[in-house]
Design a protein around this nucleic acid. Structure first.
Lengths: 291, 291
DNA sequence: AAGCAAGAGGAATTTTTATTCTATTTTGCG
DNA sequence: CGCAAAATAGAATAAAAATTCCTCTTGCTT
């Protein structure tokens, strides 16, 4: 093989090598793949995607197995490797293998190490903070599932389904939720109206609410007055209100037709929006699926 | 090979199988190796030590390379494998490979596994949707923790710490993230500027960026042009950029000083923002804690 | 629309790799 | 100390895998 291979492949290699060096680690290779992705042919793109998504598979399996999994011919994989300046697929594969050889700890060991790190509490590095937030969010999501009653969800969806326009109000920390709801509701074809108080015009924006509409209001301690006022205004006008807040003593409790209590994750006094987002999204998708 | 191998190896296998089952994972295999170590012959002990010490090598390399590294003959490795009840060395190798493949289960596979789990309830009601979203979000958060590199987080925090003003850009689905960052950064006392494109004035808003500042940009497929343009503009002006996007093929990859790849949870084509939010929040808190 | 170049598929070929076999050495035991 | 049984090394062989090469397709240009 060496004799013939050299004869045929040298041309290809040289052409590539002139453009840039052959990557020698996965990071560099991934960058190279990403960069050149737009210039690749259809089949090679398919392989590029697969490689970025399943690096382990590339490292471990044989060319035939990878080809089958990626839905391409074995020869296509070799063309791919050569396109990136390698002698053959095996050369490219070595790059991926190297990554695995270096990555010692197994998944379980890694998680254990993370907890170790966290329980020391001494580490305040970004990675530790991220892990902590993630864990807190996971707990919050589980809590959300357990606490949220199916009946409340059904009623909320029903209110939203009947609404001609869905008005949205949330301020400060919760504002991202209203923004997300606005986007998502519009995407499923519902008329949404974001009371964003832009230019201080929330009083005017409120006026657009009609009993045939609905309002979704989100507010957490310490209950932005503007939002509470909007809810009160809606309730007086007989506009159905779906509330999302943090606890039963919230001023929303009394005035809403349906209220959800969400305990979002908190670290260092910073409350997350993960669980709230999850609830909001579920409402929209449920609405989209049924109505 | 099959004909002869069966004839000769069956005896060996049977003998072993009677004592205990052939291990099917690395943990079990390691235990078995440790247990039987004292009863092994000299050369097989040598291999046992090597296997316990370099599992990755066993998984990846060819029999010849391993033999050389361990200082034994290739055939000794095969005898070793057979001594533990395997058909040949390749069988044993598969066990070690499995560990590497599973060490980082890909995000997609995990989601698939969850769907399996949830398929008990073919319910499409809001409650089922909520559960599904929550599960998907949990998986996304786990994935986030695993894939995010400490170095990237450190560098991102450093960039933000040095910045006089932190500019924020995100549109459409990602906009809630920018809104959240604006709130959170302001709360920890950092000067933040939200490029919200209000009144179509994003071109003017961009002009405020200075090399002493920093830009945080968020965009997911299909990569809102306005956001990408803003990033390009910032890169040209030498403004440090921290990017949050969904995959290496994103147009952000090339132009950012640090990029995070977040695979948010998705159900019914609706992508969540839970993982992205978690990352954003972690960055802010890390920034608040250190700088 | 026709011809051409680049790309893709798949069988054929070569190389690499795993496994077996046998001659030789080592080890344990009487 | 010598004999038998087990273990080992290394060449020989068989299997599997990677790679090449030729044909057919696709997309693009003139």
């Amino acid at each position: 093989m060496p004799k013939r291979k050299n004869l045929t492949s040298v041309g290809t290699r040289t052409r590539r090598a002139a453009a840039s060096a052959v990557p020698s680690d996965v990071v560099g290779l991934n960058r190279e793949i990403s960069t050149r992705y737009p210039t690749l042919s259809k089949r090679l793109r398919q392989i590029a995607e697969f490689a970025l998504k399943h690096p382990n598979e590339i490292a471990i399996e044989s060319i035939a197995v990878i080809a089958q999994h990626a839905g391409v011919q074995p020869s296509a994989l070799i063309r791919f490797a050569k396109a990136f300046g390698f002698e053959g697929f095996s050369d490219l594969q070595r790059i991926f293998q190297q990554r695995l050889r270096e990555s010692r700890p197994s998944y379980a060991e890694r998680i254990a190490a993370m907890r170790e790190e966290l329980h020391g509490q001494r580490d305040h590095g970004p990675q530790a903070i991220l892990t902590r937030f993630a864990e807190a969010n996971i707990a919050a999501l589980q809590h959300l599932c357990e606490e949220t009653k199916a009946g409340d969800l059904d009623r909320a969806v029903q209110i939203l389904r009947k609404a001609e326009t869905i008005h949205l109000v949330a301020q400060r920390r919760s504002f991202p939720l209203a923004a997300y709801l606005y986007y998502a509701l519009s995407k499923i074809g519902r008329r949404a109206h974001l009371i964003d108080a832009i230019g201080g015009m929330d009083q005017e924006q409120r006026q657009l609410m009609d009993p045939r509409d609905a309002l979704v209001a989100v507010t957490y301690a310490d209950y932005t007055p503007r939002v509470v006022e909007t809810v009160t205004f809606a309730a007086q006008r007989k506009v159905p209100v779906v509330g999302i807040t943090d606890q039963p003593l919230s001023p929303l409790t009394a005035q809403c037709d349906v209220v959800f209590y969400v305990e979002d994750a908190a670290v260092h006094d910073f409350r997350s929006l993960g669980a709230s987002m999850c609830l909001a999204q579920s409402l929209v998708v449920a609405l989209g699926a049924t109505g």
